[in-house]
Amino acid sequence: MIPPSFAYRAPASLKEALALIDESGDDAKFLAGGHSLLPMMKFRVSEPAVLIDLGGVPELQGIREAGDRIHIGPMSTENEIIGSALLQQKCPLLPEVARWIADPQVRNRGTIGGDVAHGDPANDHPAVMLALEADFVLRSSQGERVVPANEFYFGTYFTAMEANEVLAEIRVPVLGPGTGYAYKKLKRKTGDFAIAAACVLLTLDRGICKRIAITLTNVGPTPLRASAAEQALTGKAIDDAAVENAAQLAMQICDPAEDLRGDKEYKTHMAGEMVRRAIRQALERAKEAK
């Protein structure tokens, strides 16, 4: 399998990258880790005339703390996310999720930015970004704008990002002590996309759920936020009945695509099951942290 021909550019700065995309027009694409784009090109589903490789852009690298936020360079590979001491300490959800993605080799190339910006509902980070209420910094030659993750995903491969923009930074909150978190992913085998997955973040106040985020992977055209389920739990003690209620509410918003991994009914139920399991684990972690 051979990709079509393209012009290759390797800018050394963000400014240069943005200038290149402006001059290259609609047929240009940014290349991050290449583990979605290159296979698509080999299958000739995607045929960009110009590839602008972001691998040498220093501004897109690195993970650093900025007050109560962590700023993540989108070219950080999944393995860099896993290995980041800062994230392990301040936002351990992200390394945990990254471990569920693909396989060791792919995690050495695949980037968090590519995963987030590609718009593929099967990717794992987007739902996590919704739960974290992350912000995406989008940069073009015209300037910068910050789009909340919860306003970023419009449809499959369709996001708030314009063709001339690059995802310049991902900002996630530092998870306070006492925050319970979990990402539960059901998959056929290592490296496969989720049949369904659920992300849960919650904080407790004397046994009462103070705040909870529940989001879902690969059960709709975009990552989904189960707002009704969140509302049903907020302000309540989370007992078995409450978990069950939340799972049922989460299932109601699912509209998964059928494939060899399962039909709509199965994937919807699995989203519910992953929600149950994620809430329970997050709850345990929140209690442990106390």
């Binding site: 290759y8 290449g34 583990h35 290159l38 296979p39 060791p104 080799q105 792919v106 050495n108 190339r109």
Partner: peptide
């Protein structure tokens, strides 16, 4: 470790 079929 990388998969050289998916590296230019």
């Amino acid at each position: 470790s990388v998969k050289s079929c998916t590296v230019l």
